[in-house]
């Protein structure tokens, strides 16, 4: 792989921080919107100065502190999501995009506590066609799945998952996905599929949930985020529509201009006006 030196340094920095169980600091990306003053340069038509004061005195990084994951759990998640969506020449991966923060927030909230899940027993395992039947909440599945996967790694490799070589991490994740690694409290494929689904969610969800930092996932997929009115665009066939993505926060906090109905007025990245 031919990486530029700055990219190589960036990956090194990420690896070092990730191994220590800290949230990654992405040297290449601007600070996340939630942690600092609004980014300059985007539209100013509907700026709300009142919002600026709300952020005065905010400590950079404060919003990324883990609410739910323990130190070792965070290290496991950081290591795993870096394999599921790696950083590469196309741009940041799940770690750099803040997906660990996203997963932590999700587990701390209604999703993590299965607030809208039917939770009464009994709990026979059922058939695959009958779907999710675990007695555990997603938060409990992570807690048990991480601890038991880590125990497996210590037995088979002599160290925890986050300390494994890249290829070994991949091997373990494949084993969990296929169920060839057996966990005690939860079916390994269930734990893995939850981790994979949440990783993709965090990479592609609105940045206000803690992931998709600097809209890395949206940039990768060419997704504009908050939509514009496309009524005059839909009929322009086979013409790429490439724009600077707009988040919900960009609109709420006045960083992105909108039309009378609240649809984004996108800044085009291609040659067309």
């Amino acid at each position: 792989m031919d990486l530029s030196s700055s990219r190589r340094n960036f990956l090194k920095a990420v690896t070092a921080l990730g191994a220590a169980g800290l949230p990654p600091a992405d040297a290449d990306a601007p600070p996340p919107a939630s942690a600092s003053a609004p980014a300059a340069g985007s539209g100013t038509a509907l700026m709300h100065p009142a919002h600026h004061g709300a952020h005065r005195g905010a400590v950079p990084g404060e919003a990324e502190a883990f609410q739910c994951l323990t130190g070792p759990e965070a290290a496991f998640v950081e290591a795993a999501i870096g394999v599921l969506i790696p950083a590469d020449e196309l741009g940041p991966g799940a770690r750099e995009a803040g997906v660990a923060t996203f997963i932590d927030r999700q587990l701390a909230g209604a999703f993590g506590t299965a607030a809208r899940t039917y939770r009464l027993g009994p709990w026979p395992e059922g058939t695959p066609e009958q779907g999710f039947q675990s007695r555990l909440t997603p938060r409990e599945i992570y807690r048990a799945g991480i601890a038991e996967s880590d125990a497996y790694c210590r037995t088979h490799y002599g160290r925890g998952f986050d300390a494994l070589e890249a290829l070994q991490r991949e091997e373990v994740l494949k084993g969990l996905e296929a169920g060839s690694i057996a966990l005690e409290s939860v079916a390994a494929p269930l734990f893995f599929s939850l981790l994979l689904a949440n990783t993709q969610e965090g990479f592609f969800a609105d940045p206000m949930y803690g992931g998709n930092r600097d809209k890395a996932g949206w940039r990768l997929a060419g997704f504009p985020g908050v939509a514009a009115a496309y009524v005059d665009e839909i009929g322009k066939h086979n013409v790429p529509y490439r724009v600077e993505p707009v988040s919900i926060g960009d609109v709420q906090q006045g960083r992105a201009p909108v039309d009378a109905h609240g649809h984004a007025l996108h800044t085009r990245l291609d040659k067309r006006s």
Binding site: R116, T117, Y118, Y209, I248, V258, H261, G262, H263
Partner: peptide
């Protein structure tokens, strides 16, 4: 209302507008 309704996670993945299965399924 915009912009909150353009939230894929909330509406499409967490089913904000759909039946709450904790009460009835």
């Amino acid at each position: 209302d915009m912009p909150g309704i353009h939230d894929e996670l909330k509406y499409s993945r967490r089913f904000e507008l759909m039946q709450d299965l904790s009460r009835e399924t």
